[in-house]
């Protein structure tokens, strides 16, 4: 298990990303040790999504590098990054609409994703895993239906199932509770907490209620840089942190969902 080692699993070193003249990230450094859960918050435009884009290889840093398990990944194409065990869940449900729910899970569960090895049918282990996940996400009855015909909530759960099936070493969650009810948000928080330990998880959100439920170390981004790090209670007491949320009173930040 990687958690025995002390070096960080994810190591962002002095990354700068500029779009035209605008610097989205400025010399940003961030380490997440293996098995840890880390929450990233910050006002709009702080660079949260750009940071995730950089980690998964969608955006190339202008300077600095991203290391994963000691290896520089910031020059790899996206599918190679994904192949190393980094999985990102986007805000909008990213299920493959032309395939059935089961096929979605089977593709996510596959280990070998080359163009020739794809000819191998799914292994019994992969099939069992897919069926388990269908059962657990309550989609067994909908397994053979094209994902396009699933309800929005079902798509959300299918994608969570896909993330679990992919069994990533590092999981990047971009506002995972967007559009969820309070009950579903609580369930998702519990799910993420159980995933930490075996998986390393980095969560972006600005729903403070959800962040509270996660009960994990928080990094505050501001203007493309790390502004503060600490636990949520300490950060809440920090007037500078409240200040960057446009001086919004605490309750407003609370209510934001």
């Amino acid at each position: 298990m990687p958690s025995e080692r002390t070096e960080p699993l994810l190591d962002v070193r002095g990354v700068t990303v500029a779009f035209g003249g605008f610097k989205a990230l400025t010399n940003l450094s961030l380490q997440v040790p293996p098995g840890h859960l880390r929450v990233l918050i910050g006002p709009n435009g702080a660079g949260k999504s750009t940071l995730l884009d950089t980690i998964i290889g969608k955006v190339r840093p202008d300077s600095g590098e991203v290391r994963f398990a000691g290896r520089v990944i910031s020059r790899l194409p996206e599918h190679r990054v994904a192949g190393l065990g980094i999985c990102r869940k986007f805000q909008a449900p990213g299920v493959l609409e032309g395939l059935t729910a089961r096929e979605n899970l089977l593709l996510a569960a596959r280990r070998d994703k080359g163009v020739l090895s794809i000819l191998r049918p799914p292994t019994p282990a992969e099939q069992t895993r897919a069926d388990e996940l269908l059962d657990l996400t309550g989609l067994t009855g909908r397994a053979a239906i094209p994902a396009a015909a699933l309800a929005h909530g079902e798509k959300q759960w299918l994608e969570i199932g896909m993330v679990v099936a992919a069994d990533p070493r590092l999981l990047l969650l971009d506002e995972p509770t967007a559009g969820m009810t309070a009950q579903e948000t609580a369930q998702t928080a519990a799910l993420i907490q159980t995933m930490a330990g075996r998986h390393t998880v980095l969560v972006i959100d600005h729903d403070m209620h959800f962040v509270d439920l996660l009960n994990a170390p928080v990094t505050v981004l501001h203007q493309g840089q790390v502004f503060r790090e600490g636990d949520l209670a300490t950060l809440r007491a920090d007037p500078a942190v409240m200040e960057i949320y446009l001086g919004r009173p605490r309750e407003a930040a609370h209510a934001q969902a």
Partner: peptide, 15 residues
């Protein structure tokens, strides 16, 4: 569109 999302039964157990 309004279908209730299925409640996963102890998804966490699978992990």
């Amino acid at each position: 569109p309004a279908a209730p999302s299925p409640v996963p039964r102890e998804v966490s157990d699978a992990l």
